[in-house]
């Protein structure tokens, strides 16, 4: 009985704590496994795919990039994180700023795509998520599994959302789950985006962005640019993802 009382105490305490668990910054590590991506290219022969897998597959530790997500209940900003040049090279910071406003149901993404600057401006279109009965821990939080399909890039998406962070934000262009998405897996491990640190704090100017220019397009127009490019690249036997975020 005493145990239950204690449990109750803890539960109610954590319930109070959860009040503030709606605002903060997540650090993600985005890892791209090129060997997987290349061995999926439809125009390669079985022999060429095996060759890529055998040569690169077992030693592919992935190409890593840091990403950050600032979130509150009502809005989120996802962008490239602070790069560290331990490997002897620092790449250019991409123009890739995704802002979502869940209160006004509006999304504005600043994306450099195929050599052009775009502002993808539209109402929120959340993917159709399927909720599955699997749980696991990510960055210290128990997360539940949800899946969806990216019909534009033809990718299966697996998201793990924290049950006790009631924020519907997420990395890349994914959101709309009952909890913050802490892990995202694109196409069975081709790209993984995994939270390394979740920090709750009052956000002040984190959502301020410098003025950016670009051609204003809708979600549908953005998807069409991507779909057309992928189609054309596959026809020309080129890997579309050398020039396109996977």
């Amino acid at each position: 009985m005493r145990k239950i009382a204690l449990l109750l105490l803890i539960l109610s305490f954590s319930a109070i704590c959860q009040e503030v668990k709606t605002e903060g910054i997540v650090q993600y590590e985005r890892t791209t496994f090129w060997a997987n991506i290349m061995s999926r290219l439809t125009y390669l022969s079985a022999e060429e795919r095996d060759r890529i897998k055998l040569t690169w597959g077992s030693s592919d530790e992935g190409w890593k990039q840091k990403m950050t997500l600032a979130f509150t209940e009502n809005q989120s900003l996802y962008q490239q994180g602070e790069d560290n040049a331990e490997q002897g090279w620092s790449g250019r910071k991409e123009t890739f700023f995704l802002t979502k406003n869940f209160a006004s149901e509006h999304s504005t993404d600043y994306i450099d795509l195929l050599g052009k600057s775009y502002i993808v401006d539209d109402t929120l279109h959340a993917p159709t998520w399927k909720i599955l009965n699997q749980i696991k821990e990510v960055a210290g939080y128990i997360c539940m599994k949800a899946v969806t399909v990216d019909t534009v890039k033809n990718q299966t998406i697996t998201a793990w959302f924290a049950q006790d962070i009631p924020v519907q934000a997420g990395p890349e262009r994914f959101f709309g789950l009952p909890g913050l998405i802490l892990e995202l897996d694109v196409n069975d491990g081709d790209v993984t985006i995994i939270a390394s640190k979740v920090e709750f704090k009052k956000l002040t100017n984190e959502f301020n962005l410098k003025k950016m220019k670009g051609k204003k397009i809708s979600d549908a127009e953005y998807n069409k640019i991507i779909a057309d490019f992928i189609k054309e690249s596959i026809k020309g036997e080129r890997n579309p993802f050398w020039g396109l975020r996977y």
Binding site: I4, L7, L11, T128, K130, M144, L177, P178, G179
Partner: peptide, 24 residues
């Protein structure tokens, strides 16, 4: 019999588990 406050509640479509609505 103790209440589970802050538990996530979701409404899914039975045919494919698609998420329709959620709350706490």
């Amino acid at each position: 019999g103790n209440p589970l406050s802050q538990a996530t509640v979701m409404l899914l479509l039975p045919k494919d588990s698609s998420l329709v609505n959620f709350g706490r």
